[in-house]
């Protein structure tokens, strides 16, 4: 988490890509409540626990489960169900 935060912090000053440190500290995955990782390549917040990435639009992180995209390399997650229910709670 600390690594995530420092990564986010380095981006906070650089335009619209990152999100402020203070916000990054309190945000978690809405489904699993596990920490989020900031992916520099895609500019998304990634939840490793459920394999979903959430977009950051215009500097505002969008953490509605429906907006999340399943990560492609996560083949074991079923494709029919966009929200993996088992891992939440």
């Amino acid at each position: 988490m600390r690594r995530t935060a420092s990564m986010l912090f380095s981006h906070a000053g650089a335009g619209h890509r990152g999100i402020p440190q203070a916000l990054a500290d309190v945000l978690v995955c809405p489904l699993s409540k596990k920490p989020l990782r900031y992916c520099e390549a895609s500019g998304c917040l990634v939840s490793e626990a459920v394999g979903v990435s959430f977009p950051i639009e215009d500097g505002i992180p969008c953490l509605v489960p429906k907006d999340g995209k399943l990560l492609e390399d996560n083949s074991e997650k079923s494709e029919q169900e966009p929200i993996p229910r088992d891992s939440s709670g």
């Binding site: 203070a22 916000l23 978690v28 409540k33 639009e57 489960p65």
Partner: peptide
């Protein structure tokens, strides 16, 4: 700070 999120799936740390 601003976040888009759903109250039914609160994305806030414990």
């Amino acid at each position: 700070h601003f976040v888009v999120g759903d109250e039914e799936f609160l994305p806030i740390k414990e």
